[in-house]
Design a binder for these strands. Structure first.
Lengths: 204, 204
DNA sequence: TCTTTTCAAGACCACTCGGTCTATAAATAG
DNA sequence: CTATTTATAGACCGAGTGGTCTTGAAAAGA
């Protein structure tokens, strides 16, 4: 008899299951390993979901990825709104925003990278759903940064001939470039000094 | 008899085969699709090599990828040496370098992306061989750019209080950020205007 | 209580992965 | 000429891929 010795292993043990939590945990896996580098079992382990549950709830790997990306973008935009919001003056807000990027692109944080930048490089060229989200993020961020620069200019805090829209685009390229160079584990001190040097070219 | 009807299909047709050409073609595939997104058959098609030849010549997918990355980096550094070399003044060289990045990050060129940036985001955190190469590239590029800024400063062409090393780091973050935002297909005019605005904060 | 719902476990599917190896044929060296 | 070298074509391998489906047990509602 080549039958299994122990049949009747325990099967289902339903637990309450929060989709948002699952998306958040899946986001962490995609963030660390990229889309192609993430296998279904990685996601099942991270979310504590079974294959069936994951497919019923999200439809598949790609759909879950888009949910995770949306969440990452929403978090990032909310953070920018907070940093550049009315709680601080515009220049102070930009300084706080830059300090946040310095923190997230130094040492181990830097090595972890950025889901949005990694996704842009890995998928934006081939996946229209992804490209639309990446473009929307950069446009939204640009609008928020340009608003802060415009408020700074209106209160006379900018150097001569600084145009808010150009300054915002420069700032975005700079921080996304920080995310790239941060992948090799730059020190916080060096990144902060570079960020300070940039902002000092714009503020009076 | 379930044998094949046509046995004796033609097998070997040896051709001379240049490894550097194969590396260059493999580079193009990795560049467009990323490391995990590239399958062996893609590389065989692009190089016109058989599996056996590819393994005999390069040892495998990962080793071939490193060869391709080395080639990409060597090409990039040679181009920078040319742009920032004695053929032009330092500020003119920086302007030419920026114009090249604008060209490579606009429209369809931008969508194609950058093998180095994509590799940094996809693999640098997990692959020491890759991380070493990415770090070496950024260090080398920073040294070259800092040299150009230093020469510009020595001839009085920089704005007050611009420090060559900080300026070089800012420039690198900016151009690598351009590669990221370029993935969504920005227009050349917008990118060029942004690059001009950046350089104008540094030159007198 | 009994029925329905909700989930986990995991077998199973067809396919693809990177990598190895054999058989064969053209080119080349002697 | 023959012998060797160099390359191709492609079968083959075990492992892994994303995705589907069946089974069974715990939870929830009646």
């Amino acid at each position: 008899m080549a039958h299994k010795i122990a049949t009747h292993l325990p099967r289902g043990r339903p637990r309450s299951f929060d989709p948002e939590t699952a998306v958040e945990r899946a986001m962490g896996v995609f963030w660390s390993r990229g889309y192609h580098g993430t296998a279904l079992p990685d996601l099942l382990r991270a979310t504590s979901l079974s294959r069936g549950s994951l497919y019923a709830a999200f439809g598949g790997k790609h759909a879950l990825f888009l949910r995770a990306l949306d969440r990452y973008i929403a978090d990032a935009l909310a953070r920018i709104d907070d940093e550049l919001g009315p709680r601080h003056g515009p220049v102070e807000g930009l300084r706080i925003l830059l300090a946040g990027y310095v923190d997230r692109t130094s040492g181990a944080n830097g090595r972890r990278g950025c889901l949005l930048v990694a996704t842009a490089m890995e998928l934006a060229g081939h996946d229209p759903d992804v490209e639309a989200r990446v473009r929307a993020f950069f446009n939204a961020m640009e609008a928020k940064a340009a608003g802060a620069f415009a408020r700074a200019k209106a209160s006379g805090q900018l150097a001569d001939r600084v145009e808010p829209k150009s300054a915002a685009r420069i700032l975005i390229c700079f921080v996304e470039g920080l995310r790239v160079t941060g992948k090799t584990g730059r020190t916080r001190a060096a990144s902060q000094a570079t960020a300070d040097a940039l902002l000092d070219r714009f503020v009076r």
